[in-house]
Simulated assay, not measured.
Amino acid sequence: MPETQSTMAVLTALPLEHEAVLAHLTDVEKLTHPRYGTRARRGRLPGTPWQVALVDMGEGTLTAAALTERVLSWFEPEAVLFVGVAGGLKDDIEIGDVVVATKVYAIHGGKQTPDGFLGRPEAWHASHCLEQAAREALRGQAHFEPIAVGDVVLADGASELAARIRTSYNDAVAIEMEGSGVAHAVHLAGEAGALIIRGISDKADADKSRADSGGSQPRAAANAAAAAVAVLHELAPRQRPPQDADLDSAPPESPVRGPSYGGDHFDFRGSTFNGAFTAKSVDHRPDSGAGR
């Protein structure tokens, strides 16, 4: 697979989410990180310019943050999509719906006092470029709303945690366990963008087990994977800046061409040289005695 092809990282937390994305890829190869042993699948997404580096990370925000950073340094992707399932928090969000996170809340930060729990929320916004591509690709097919993230499976709509989410994160329409770790790691990296795409597999209440046993998770995972594929069909790779172009193919006078070594001299044509510079003029006439 050509290394020059643009790479998109797609991360999942559950095997069924991983398989839902993998079903869309061709020419898949297995890769192992040479130092840490992390496994990945890399394949082409037909009909797009993308090669996809797919990693099944496992559950939890800490794992997600650590492995997202590893994926960023390993594959140097243009962006990261986190694709999987979530619990719905609003009555108008149905099982099987797709939610694209416009904002990701980390819900467990705060201070416990005698007067109650005082929330100290953190939030990360979706990459504008990725969100715009998603809105175009999924127009009328997905909800674009904030989501809540915490290291807990919420299966009780009457719990203290559910009540706190309703009061402190009232605009969140879904809850899951990894998105804040992914978003934070990408934010710290400072270059790639992140987009969280979740299929709703339950209503984050006491009926969660019944919904799961009825096959809601594979359905939600398949819908999220299909949404991610649609986004990648809409999204174009970034254009390389001139300094990343093939300098060998540029003419000597080209502004993208830097100094070249000619065996016994440097050619600085088309380049900028900063600093002290001393030049020596040499008379090359046969009888000049130059160079003696």
Rank of each mutant, 00 (worst) to 15 (best):
Ala206His: 13
Ala134Asp: 09
Ser201Asp: 12
Gly96Lys: 04
Ala230Lys: 10
Asp207Phe: 00
Gly84Ala: 02
Trp50Tyr: 09
Ala228Cys: 03
Asp151Val: 03
Asp212Ala: 07
Glu253Ser: 03
Leu130Trp: 04
Gly116Asn: 09
Leu45Asp: 08
Ile175Asn: 02
Ala226Thr: 01
Leu22Asp: 10
Gln132Asp: 05
Asp267His: 10
Thr272Cys: 10
Leu72Gly: 09
Glu176Pro: 06
His184Val: 00
Arg42Met: 14
Gly119Glu: 09
Ala194Met: 09
Met57Gly: 04
Asn274Ile: 13
Gly291Glu: 09
Val182Cys: 01
Ser288Cys: 14
Gly262Thr: 13
Gly199Ser: 01
Glu29Gln: 15
Asp97Val: 06
Gly60Leu: 05
His33Gln: 06
Ala290Val: 07
Ala64Glu: 03
Leu11Asn: 01
His184Gln: 15
Cys129Asn: 12
Thr32Trp: 05
Val55Ala: 06
Ser271Lys: 07
Arg70Ile: 03
Ala226Tyr: 11
Ala183Arg: 00
Gly37Arg: 07
Asp97Met: 08
Ala40Ser: 12
His265Cys: 13
Val85Ala: 08
Gly84Met: 07
Ile107Arg: 07
Asn274Ser: 12
Asp115Gln: 14
Ile107Trp: 01
Ser216Val: 06
Val85Leu: 03
Glu69Asn: 11
Lys280Met: 03
Pro286Asn: 05
Val98Asp: 06
Asp246Leu: 02
His265Lys: 12
Arg240Lys: 13
His233Glu: 15
Gly263Gln: 01
Arg238Thr: 10
Asp264Gly: 11
Thr38Phe: 05
Ala204Asp: 02
Asp205Tyr: 01
Thr272Glu: 14
His265Ile: 10
Ala183Gly: 14
Glu94Arg: 15
Ala126Gln: 07
Lys203Arg: 15
Asp171Arg: 11
Ser159Phe: 00
Val100Asn: 05
Val182Ser: 07
Ala155Val: 04
Pro255Val: 13
Met57Glu: 07
Leu14Asp: 08
Ser168Cys: 11
Lys111Gln: 08
Leu232Val: 02
Gln141Gly: 07
Leu16Ile: 02
Ala290Trp: 01
Asp202Ala: 05
Pro252Gly: 07
His108Lys: 02
Ala211Thr: 10
Asp27Gln: 01
Ala279Met: 11
Ala133Trp: 04
Asn223Cys: 05
Glu29Pro: 08
Thr68Cys: 09
Gly214Leu: 05
Thr272Phe: 12
Trp124Phe: 15
Ile175Leu: 15
Val100Leu: 13
Glu253Met: 02
Ile196Asp: 01
His143Ser: 12
Ala227Arg: 00
His284Glu: 12
Gly289Gln: 05
Gly214Met: 01
Trp124Thr: 00
Asp56Ala: 10
Glu29Trp: 02
Asp287Ile: 02
Val186Asn: 00
Thr167Gly: 11
Val83Phe: 04
Asp205Gln: 10
Phe268Arg: 06
